[in-house]
Design a binder for these strands. Structure first.
Lengths: 150, 150
DNA sequence: GTGAACCTTTCCATCGTTGGAAGGTCAAGC
DNA sequence: GCTTGACCTTCCAACGATGGAAAGGTTCAC
């Protein structure tokens, strides 16, 4: 099978398959004399594994570790579980962050009229002062050293 | 104020301040004759705005739009609200995806013994077959054109 | 006048992915 | 045999946001 067929079969683009090979995530495919990559069913299994792990949000590094365990018949399932649960913890941290953001934004937006008028609590919250507020007189600013251009 | 002071005052690294200037998110700062960037209180207000928007997960593009509205006294709050709610929708999509991932993983992990034995539903789910499964005989595979190296 | 602490620009790297350019290969139709 | 189009190859660049290092200039306090 050529790389294009494999891409269709696995849902990973040919670009990415080459990239995964470059970065060592998957083994280099055999080549025809003319240089085309040739894939076996076994390679496709591996790529499907990669695809599913990717869909679960694992990083390439984690996928690498999982692949190693997958190939290791003497593995301990505890090792697999540890990677998975570590990843779950990461995902949940990310989720908490997103949740906080959405809650804040929803709260601000709920107080925004959303009409033709400029008043908006969202902008009020983002900036304390008007953006074009007059610059304070020079004596109130820390003196700059040297002269200003422009 | 020099860039370092501004970095401290706004919580944005000097690196990022220069980057925002390069990419046009913020206006180019004035310079002293020796080339140092000089910031006014007004600039700092803008950067604080950027910082808060960034903390809420807005992309630089969205922050750009928000800044434009912020500076526009004739804005309609509806435009601001639309950006915010669009962003909320994106965040919630992301959250749903993460939630699905964690649920899948938690489910798989809950069925994993996490002991010394190799059997693991997580790996089972990722790969349908054993990675080193024997390659099917040649006649079952699509014939490759040309000869194989290696 | 010297040293520390700043500042400047430029380049490189990250992560996962996509795109393009320039060129070689293959199969099919004529 | 020749052309065409679909495939393949490598290399190079970009995204977004950030960090880092190198190599050099500036400012300030002692």
């Amino acid at each position: 099978m050529n790389i294009g067929d494999v891409a269709k079969a696995t849902g990973i683009s040919a670009k990415m398959i080459r990239y995964y090979e470059d970065t060592g995530l998957i083994r280099a495919a055999l080549r025809t004399y003319s240089g085309y990559r040739v894939y076996t069913e076994n390679d496709i299994q591996t790529l499907r594994f990669v695809r599913r792990a990717r869909d679960l949000g694992f990083t390439v590094k984690q996928i690498n570790d999982l692949l190693t365990l997958w190939r290791d018949r003497g593995r301990a399932s505890a090792d697999v579980k540890q990677i998975a649960m570590g990843h779950v913890a990461e995902l949940e941290t990310k989720m908490r962050e997103l949740k906080e953001m959405t809650e804040t934004l929803r709260h601000l937006a709920s107080n925004c009229q959303g009409d033709n008028r400029p008043d908006c609590p969202i902008l009020m919250s983002l900036g304390n002062a008007a953006p074009d507020a007059p610059v304070p007189p020079l004596r109130d600013r820390k003196k700059t050293r040297g002269f200003e251009r422009v």
